[in-house]
């Protein structure tokens, strides 16, 4: 389990993470979602003990990362696939990591095999594609068979086959009871690979919950065609709904459920031609949730320049 409590990180006057609170539980894949620059990577670096928080704390199973006695056995992380010396071979890179944590060298071959890069184990990393480098990073994260895993934008650079492989891999890790924390700026990716989602924007926690909860929280719209749109519209607006006339034939209703629209239509005697509830897509939810954060950011910049 990863716990973030009142976490704040400032770089000079810039606030990267602002009083963040959340927990990442074992047994599920937790997505960490936010626009670029929202503080995801900073939070992950603090969890890994690489950056020190300005205030608050990040702990792994109750302890700060820097207090871990055998870190690779407790946490595996892929923060940046490029963070390796390109002149070294993949095997030597992993051997050095393994040896530092007292991990048997045969484990290196196991993880190379698992990540699907055993055939290039003795090649210098400089010749690796981004996808191969990602797989090397995943191999490194698995070296100590850790119960907690973090991945920062793991899908970047992977081909479709690699993306399917990594989603399956996250599921497997979670089913084994591990804590799996995956960041992404792509809602669509999280929709298929995560069970729980934590959304941040400008360093603030925006919301968290399951994907279903998130879509429900934003609410949907109802698409309506009827024999008399005008009368239906007046009746619905009187009942508190917001109605937008899409074109001559269709109106879009928000603020009430499809059942309510049907009941109102029956009550005023207007025949319905079409009644389609539409749930917000996750992409829309995400845009909706983070819009404030993004706009605020642009506005703040504008003021600074003025």
């Amino acid at each position: 389990m990863i716990s973030i409590a009142h976490l704040t990180k400032r770089y000079g006057h810039t606030v990267a993470v602002d009083d963040l609170n959340f927990e990442v539980r074992p047994g599920v894949v937790t997505g960490f979602l936010g626009p670029n620059g929202s503080g995801k990577s900073t939070t992950m670096r603090i969890i890994m003990g690489l950056d020190a928080p300005t205030a608050g704390r990040a702990t792994i199973n109750g302890r700060p990362y820097r207090d871990l006695k055998s870190p690779l056995h407790e946490v595996g992380a892929l923060l940046d696939a490029g963070a390796v010396h390109p002149g070294r071979t993949a095997r030597n890179h992993l051997r050095a990591l393994a040896v530092s944590n007292g991990i048997a060298v045969r484990r290196v071959d196991e993880v190379l095999e698992f990540a699907g890069i055993a055939s290039v184990a003795n090649k210098r990393i400089s010749g690796f594609s981004l996808g191969m480098a990602q797989r090397l990073g995943i191999a490194a994260a698995l070296l100590g068979d850790p119960p907690v895993l973090l991945f920062d934008e793991p899908v970047n650079g992977l081909d479709p086959e690699g993306i399917r492989w990594i989603r399956e891999f996250f599921r497997t890790l979670a089913h084994e009871g591990r804590t799996v924390f995956v960041s992404s700026h792509l809602m669509s990716e999280m929709a298929v690979s995560a069970d729980q989602i934590i959304v941040i924007g400008r360093g603030h926690l925006i919301t968290q919950g399951s994907i279903d909860q998130l879509t429900a929280s934003v609410g949907g719209t109802v698409l309506v065609r009827s024999a008399d749109n005008q009368r239906l519209r007046v009746a619905l607006e009187r009942g508190g709904a917001t109605v937008v006339v899409s074109n001559d034939e269709t109106i879009t209703v928000t603020g009430v459920e499809a059942e309510v629209v049907g009941t109102v239509a029956l009550a005023i005697g207007v025949a319905l031609v079409e009644l389609t509830p539409r749930r917000a897509s996750l992409e829309e939810v995400f845009m909706d949730l983070t819009a404030g954060a993004v706009e605020y950011s642009s506005a703040a910049k504008a003021t600074q320049h003025a």
Binding site: S70, H73, H85, R88, N92, R95, A96, V99, S100, G102
Partner: peptide, 23 residues
Amino acid sequence: MPSVTLASVVRAEWIKFRTVRST
């Protein structure tokens, strides 16, 4: 669970030192 010791880190750094061309 083996822990990280100065000796294990020295062994790791020795691997890193000799596995790059610049050395």
